[in-house]
């Protein structure tokens, strides 16, 4: 295998490894921009993964699986929304509980499906474009979910900064009292944002169980939900930086595997820490302006809101 093929393999692997993080982190970004900190991403991903897998086994169609994953993610986020927005429970504690619940719940409902083989989501080569050398395999020969993740990135970026809805969402996240005073329903908007986060986490889970490793195995997210959460903060709530961070993390993970596979002498301990290290350093570099971080961080993040208060 020559260098070019290896480079393409690494880059394609980068996109695949980064995609679940892109989904989950963009979803969490919207939730946090509305002022809600949902630490239940890992749990919602797992429930999405298992629901998507089961629906695919039962219907034989992975696209129904994707829909089921979205539905399952939303369902779990509704539990979180009801607890934190209506019953005003502590968001950190509720989010942690949601993750623990999601881990257990997904293991329980997935018990009979461990080891069931499925036909995963297949790549859809885009006619003509996929045949271009280098660029074709890199950009135009992916599965539907990868294309969709890019669409979602564009949508989220546009929505947040170029739409009226995004302005309202950010207003709610900055100062819920002010937003409430001018007549926006803070609770309703936050509910929608949390549901979007749930749907995206469900998609991230579906990507793992339907594309990445087409199988269901207990706890198969292996901590990716937490990495997505950290990405949002390190990317200072900017969608573009989330995308860079996700691909950077995925890319260095894949690169470190390839470096070992080629046979270079590197410490596996060092290699295992590199994705974390590099992502933190790069994101810290591009967002080192402390004032801007404060401006980007939603001021009401994690604070409970009661309309009567």
């Amino acid at each position: 295998m020559d260098g070019m093929d290896t480079a393409i393999a690494i880059l394609v692997g980068t996109i695949r490894a980064g995609t679940p993080l892109v989904f989950a982190a963009l979803g969490e970004l919207i939730a946090e921009k509305s002022g809600v900190l949902n630490l239940g991403v890992e749990g919602m991903m797992l429930v999405g993964a298992v629901a998507g897998f089961i629906a695919t086994v039962l219907t034989g169609n992975p696209y129904f699986g994707i829909l089921a994953a979205i539905a399952a993610g939303i369902l779990l986020s509704l539990v979180f929304g009801t607890l934190t927005q209506v019953l005003l429970t502590n968001q950190v504690a509720t989010g942690l509980a949601l993750t623990i619940f999601g881990i257990g719940m997904s293991a329980f409902i997935g018990l009979d499906f461990v080891g069931t083989p499925i036909e995963g989501l297949k790549p859809i080569p885009i006619p003509f474009l996929a045949d271009i050398p280098i660029v074709g395999p890199l950009l135009f020969n992916h599965d539907a979910l990868i294309y969709f993740s890019i669409v979602m990135f564009a949508l989220v970026s546009w929505f947040l900064f170029h739409s009226r809805g995004g302005l309202i969402l950010r207003a709610v996240g900055e100062s819920h009292h002010a937003a409430h005073a001018i007549g926006y329903s803070v609770v309703k908007i936050r509910f929608l944002a949390v549901m979007f986060g749930g749907a995206m986490a469900g998609l991230a889970g579906a990507y793992l169980s339907l594309v990445y490793t087409p199988q269901w195995a207990e706890n198969m997210t292996a901590g990716r939900g937490w990495i997505a959460l950290a990405l949002v903060v390190f990317a200072t709530w900017r969608p573009g930086r989330v995308l860079i961070g996700a691909y950077l993390f995925g890319g260095i993970t894949i690169l470190s595997l390839h470096v070992q596979a080629v046979g270079y002498d590197v410490s596996s301990h060092l290699v295992a820490t590199l994705p974390y290290l590099a992502t933190v350093i790069v994101l810290a570099m591009i967002s080192r302006d402390a004032t801007k971080i404060r401006l980007n961080a939603p001021a009401s993040l994690g604070k409970p809101f009661h309309p009567g208060a």
């Binding site: 393999a9 692997g13 695949r16 793992l208 490793t213 199988q215 292996a222 993970t253 894949i254 390839h258």
Partner: peptide, 14 residues
């Protein structure tokens, strides 16, 4: 599972 799979693919690529 995800990382194990990518590792296997990297080895196969090599």
């Amino acid at each position: 599972p995800g990382k194990e799979r990518e590792a296997a693919e990297a080895l196969i690529d090599q």
